[in-house]
């Protein structure tokens, strides 16, 4: 059995052929934003997470002999200080590992005058008076600094806006779909105006006429939706592959294609297609009501 032909075909109207492609692009944008938001975690996030609840004491003494004494003195102060759970000096090898990614290739990291570092874990249930601690450690010498990771944490707070950015981007994609579908439908209505009048004179309801356009937008939307979703999945797999091999720069997000991320992608794709279908119906019904 052959499918019924559309009574009012969309495809004969200029621009309609690209509707599926446009919806596909918008679905791709939407699913990628959803994937990054739900399954993504940048290296910056790693750093921020690691920095949260910790401080680092840097000791840059003038010579190696006094350095050892200063680390011990600093540990003694930190161990007895309220609000500090644990203080542990980092070995030379650990410090070199930390610094290496920040040094241009070809430089001998071991030859650099590296400070000693003490990794301090803060107690979760006790507040830390950072100014008093800074004063006490400052008494050990000029080369003692406390890095409270404030800049990272401020950036981390900023990154809390990513939810709004993600939702905004998806909404923007949805609005673009609504706009393009509405324009397409209006063009189609203009092109088929005589046929629409004939249909009305032989008893077609507004719902019947709307369903003619709605069905075609649904088909094109589903085509675009599937293409956009599949493209998103392929892109996601490629990002993960590059990220896992470590050949990317640190700004490339690490996206975990876990179940929530895949579900979010699917939901976003379905939502954008559904919005396109509803937009088609509403546009037709509003246009018909206006000329009634």
């Amino acid at each position: 059995m052959t499918a019924r032909p559309p009574v009012l075909p969309l495809r004969n109207v200029s621009g309609n052929r690209s509707l599926a492609g446009f919806i596909g692009v918008m679905v791709f944008v939407g699913v990628m934003v959803a994937a990054v938001f739900v399954g993504g975690e940048s290296r910056f996030d790693h750093l921020s997470r690691d920095a949260d609840g910790r401080i680092t004491v840097l000791l840059s003494p003038p010579d190696a002999n006094s350095a050892a004494a200063t680390v011990e003195d600093a540990i003694a102060i930190l161990d007895g200080f309220s609000g500090i759970a644990r203080a542990e000096p980092l070995s030379r090898a650990e410090i070199i590992t930390l610094v290496t990614p920040w040094v241009a290739p070809g430089h001998d990291v071991d030859a650099l005058p590296l400070p000693n570092l003490i990794d301090v874990t803060l107690a979760k249930d006790k507040p830390l008076d950072l100014e008093v601690l800074r004063a006490k450690l400052g008494a050990l010498g000029d080369g003692v600094q406390i890095d409270d990771h404030g800049s990272w944490l401020r950036l981390h707070v900023t990154s809390g806006y990513d939810m709004f950015i993600a939702v905004g981007a998806i909404l923007l994609a949805a609005v673009a779909v609504v706009y393009v579908v509405a324009m397409t439908i209006r063009g189609s209505l203009d092109a088929h105006w005589e046929s629409i009048a004939t249909l009305q004179w032989i008893g077609a309801s507004d719902g019947f006429i709307a369903s003619q356009f709605q069905g075609q937008v649904a088909r094109q939307g589903l085509t675009g939706g599937v293409l956009g979703l599949m493209s998103g999945l392929v892109c996601l797999a490629a990002v993960k592959l590059v990220s896992d091999t470590g050949s990317s720069t640190w700004t490339l997000p690490h996206i975990d294609p876990n179940a929530p991320a895949l579900a979010a992608m699917f939901v976003v794709a379905c939502a954008i297609v559904a919005i396109a279908i509803v937009a088609a119906r509403v546009t037709v019904l509003r246009a018909l009501a206006r000329i009634a």
């Binding site: 032909p5 009574v7 075909p9 004939t198 009305q200 032989i202 077609a204 309801s205 009634a292």
Partner: peptide, 25 residues
């Protein structure tokens, strides 16, 4: 409007200019 649509479904019309949909068989 709905009533008119229902009434029209009970009326067969032969238009003078036929008003056929040329893209349909």
């Amino acid at each position: 409007r709905e009533t008119l649509m229902r009434l029209r479904r009970r009326i067969g019309v032969v238009f003078q200019d036929f008003r056929l949909l040329d893209h349909l068989t």
